[in-house]
Computed example of a mutant assay.
Amino acid sequence: MADATVSILDMLNDDMVSHGLVVQCLQKSATASDQLHGQIRNMLTNLLSSGSVDVGEAKLSSPEHVEFIAWNGSVEGRVERALAAIDTAAGPDKEFAYWLCLRQNIDRVEDDR
């Protein structure tokens, strides 16, 4: 998982990273979907705990700009929200259930829920 984390951090230097890219990075070492789910949880927890990465939604704000909206809450709460978003997304939407972004590149933080 350490290699996958490094890959994610490298990709974040260039852009936002979707859930689908997280899965691609982790699939090399996961053997079952339950194990993959646990690895996603661990990776998200580690990345968010670092203080340099955040999780949230990406929305098209103009034809030239995608806005990153970071989620509020504790690390554990945001990880659970990301996992719930995966579980509730249908078909191809699963790939975009959540997005990761470097904290320095966040456009805004969502209003309190």
Rank of each mutant, 00 (worst) to 15 (best):
D112I: 14
D112P: 12
H19G: 04
Y98D: 07
N46A: 14
I40K: 02
G51A: 07
V55T: 06
D10P: 05
D14C: 14
L102E: 11
G77E: 14
S7I: 10
V17D: 01
M11N: 08
D34T: 07
A2E: 05
L36S: 02
G91I: 03
A4K: 02
C101K: 02
G77C: 06
V75E: 04
S33E: 15
R41P: 01
V22S: 01
S50H: 02
S52N: 07
D14P: 07
R103V: 05
S33Q: 15
I106A: 06
R113T: 11
T5S: 07
N46H: 08
L60I: 09
C101S: 12
Q24V: 11
D54V: 00
D93N: 13
V53E: 04
I86K: 01
R103H: 10
V109R: 11
V66Q: 05
A85Y: 04
M1H: 09
V66D: 06
S33A: 15
I8V: 13
N46L: 12
V22E: 00
A32I: 12
R103C: 04
K59E: 15
D3I: 14
P92V: 13
N72L: 13
S74K: 05
Q35E: 15
A4Q: 02
E64N: 10
V17I: 05
S33K: 15
G77L: 08
V22C: 04
E80G: 01
S74M: 13
D14W: 09
G73S: 07
E64C: 06
T5P: 00
S62D: 06
S33V: 15
E57G: 03
V17H: 00
A90W: 00
D34P: 04
H19E: 12
D10N: 10
N42V: 11
L36V: 03
D54F: 00
R81F: 10
V109C: 11
A58N: 04
P92N: 13
H37T: 08
E76I: 10
I40M: 10
I69F: 09
V6T: 12
Q104A: 14
Q35A: 13
M11G: 11
I8K: 01
K59Q: 11
E76H: 09
V17F: 00
E95W: 09
Y98F: 14
K28G: 15
V23F: 06
G20F: 11
I69D: 03
V79N: 02
K94G: 02
S49K: 12
K59W: 09
S18Y: 05
W99C: 10
A4C: 05
T88H: 07
Q35M: 15
G56I: 03
M43L: 14
S33G: 06
E95P: 04
N105I: 00
S29C: 09
A85V: 10
R78H: 08
T5G: 06
N13P: 02
A97V: 10
S18W: 04
A84C: 11
V75T: 12
A58I: 08
T5F: 00
I106K: 04
E57F: 11
Q39T: 05
A70Y: 12
R103A: 08
D111A: 15
T31Q: 14
E67V: 06
D3Y: 06
E67Q: 09
W99M: 12
N13K: 09
A90L: 12
R78N: 08
F68R: 00
D107A: 05
E76D: 15
V23Q: 13
N105T: 01
A2F: 01
I8W: 00
L21A: 07
V17N: 03
K94D: 10
